[in-house]
Nucleic acid binder design. Structure first.
Lengths: 136, 136
DNA sequence: ATTTCATGTAACAATTATAGTTGCATCACT
DNA sequence: AGTGATGCAACTATAATTGTTACATGAAAT
């Protein structure tokens, strides 16, 4: 696979599911389409289930499907569920000798943090249905 | 170092330089402040020089400094110079068996590509001087 | 001129992050 | 019971990133 694969895999999968919201899809099927492994799929989809975007069922004729309508799932929901932070590094306070360095570091972090927030807001304006319906 | 280190290292360095735009800084000094290696610093700063954001001089009393004023260097300049693509994976057309898969893939790519563009626009609204001056 | 100190670059090693794999417990439907 | 799915843990493999060493080149200082 490539970089940013978690988000990308998630969006593909949700896009597919949006086309047939009633149908249960197995991780094996999803993996086959995505050219990856069922366990990898479950690993990516797990957090989406925890976030309430998907539901899964065990057992015969089990699998995965959307927990709500595609219009009600935004890219921000997915992004946050996956715990991605593409802009701002999760850097919970590196040590810096000189105080100028420290202040500057704080500044850079604040700026990136702000842009990260704006990115999430942007993601929130697009739903899975939008992706699937070729709004763009 | 941590993730996103290239962008982050670049911004820190430029921030420092913005404080003393006349002064030549060596990669060794920069590296010491950033807690990394001079070669790594040159590797990150090289593309910024190629993009015309920095100038460097060899020899005794050589080093690096800004090629223009901090107000005239935006985060987008840095981001693009480093060739970062944080949102959209550079995926020059993966093969897909079924055409639905293909169409969906195109869609996801288009959406992410659009958001990537908007991110660059956002970066363009903030300059190194803004970072340094604690505008936020 | 020679020494000194810097960049520029290549090649390699080490580390870290990510993806892939195997194995098995658990649960639900047939 | 038997089958086929998820859930999860542990491990391996691979890729990406960073760090290191070595050396050629160029410019200033002596």
């Amino acid at each position: 696979m490539k970089r940013n694969s978690r988000l990308s895999l998630a969006l593909h999968t949700l896009g597919h599911m949006a086309a047939e919201p009633k149908q249960w899809k197995t991780s094996a099927d999803i993996a086959a389409h995505a050219g990856t492994n069922p366990v990898v799929v479950r690993r990516v989809l797990g957090p989406l289930r925890k976030a309430g975007l998907l539901v899964s069922e065990k057992g015969h004729s089990g699998g995965w499907k959307l927990a709500r309508s595609p219009q009600e799932i935004t890219l921000a929901d997915v992004y946050l569920a996956l715990d991605e932070r593409l802009i701002a590094p999760d850097d919970p306070h590196a040590n810096h000798h000189c105080s100028i360095e420290h202040a500057l570091h704080e500044q850079v972090s604040k700026v990136l943090e702000g842009i990260e927030r704006e990115l999430v807001e942007r993601f929130a304006t697009t739903s899975i249905a939008d992706v699937q319906n070729m709004k763009y």
